[in-house]
């Protein structure tokens, strides 16, 4: 894959390339022009396929739009409805529970896996195996587990039976359904997350561990004193990405419980989908989408500040 990326020779006539004096002012101007050149394709894609649809979505949130008839301006009606909609707030709480379990378990497991791999083996086969679940589409993963975790016939409950636990209604009990869905997605993502963290681990100089070992530090101590602090920038990035992805949990719910039982797994994204595409209330769905964006932006800002990932040698 790498070959496809590293595009061959630089173009000799490239615009700003030839000037020799790295003096302050021309340097800056050259920066500007080069920046424009580099940013343009992405900016175009961003404007057309992210920004514009988002603006249109925000517009739709102020309308009454049923997909089949043109949108009609309705002011803040959707937003006032949103504030009084208990189902919306409940779906937010459900989503939050999911995110906490999903991210909490996933991050811990991934760090553990990465550290174990890092300290135990160079086997790329092993890393490849752990990445396998990520290769299977979301919905299929959900279906496979939905079936394996069945209350009556599922193989998971058979295992539990052998070690003396009664069958559990993983997807069918109100208090178990969200943890179950969260863990299913941990299964799919743990290897991938571990691999990202593993890459971060490899950048930590070996000499630090060796020195620590000479000083009599245990593996456990080294982990807390060397690994974790040095891993922070990578962790920050991994967390920002996974937390936002986690908030957008949808496929697994759509394929399995569809929000049940008794709305116990009706996450906010599924609620939006239901409003938009099964009740055709696209205006209201858009308003919920806007609320979700605001919430996510808040969470990410908070996270970035907490982890100080925004720090760079440029700022």
């Amino acid at each position: 894959m790498a070959d496809t990326v590293s595009v061959p020779t630089p173009r000799p006539g490239a615009p700003a390339g030839r000037r020799r004096s790295p003096q302050a002012r021309p340097h800056v101007r050259r920066d500007h022009r080069a920046a424009l050149f580099f940013i343009l394709p992405a900016l175009l894609g961003f404007g057309v396929f992210y920004l514009w649809p988002t603006i249109r979505g925000v517009y739709l949130s102020f309308t009454d739009y049923s997909l089949l008839t043109p949108p009609a301006w309705s002011g803040v009606a959707n937003y006032t409805k949103l504030i009084g909609d208990a189902s919306f707030w409940r779906s937010l709480a459900v989503t939050l529970e999911y995110v906490v379990i999903n991210i909490g378990v996933q991050t811990i497991v991934a760090i553990a896996l990465a550290v174990l791999m890092h300290r135990l083996t160079r086997s790329s086969f092993l890393r490849g195996v752990l990445l396998l679940p990520y290769l299977v589409a979301n919905v299929v993963v959900a279906l496979v587990w939905y079936w394996m975790a069945d209350y009556t016939l599922g193989v998971v409950n058979q295992f539990l039976g052998w070690i003396g636990f009664g069958p559990l209604g993983f997807f069918g009990e109100e208090h178990l359904v969200i943890p179950t869905i969260a863990l299913v997605n941990v299964w799919r993502h743990m290897g991938y997350t571990a691999l990202l963290i593993f890459a971060g681990l490899q950048a930590i100089p070996r000499s630090l561990y060796e020195a620590a070992a000479v000083d009599g530090s245990t593996e456990w101590r080294s982990f807390w004193r060397i690994t974790l602090p040095l891993l922070r920038p990578v962790l920050a990035m991994v967390l920002v990405i996974t937390v936002i992805g986690s908030f957008q949990i949808f496929d697994t719910v759509a394929v399995t419980t569809q929000g049940g039982p008794a709305d116990a797994s009706k996450v906010v994204y599924y609620y939006i989908f239901e409003k938009a595409f099964s009740q055709f209330d696209f205006g209201y769905a858009s308003a919920m989408g806007v609320a979700l964006i605001v919430i996510l932006a808040g969470v990410s800002l908070f996270q970035l500040r907490l982890l100080r990932a925004g720090e760079s040698d440029l700022s």
Binding site: T152, G169, F171, G172, E173, G260
Partner: peptide, 10 residues
């Protein structure tokens, strides 16, 4: 009759 929780799955 099975409990409701048994209805999710197979």
């Amino acid at each position: 009759m099975p409990p409701l929780k048994a209805t999710e799955g197979v």
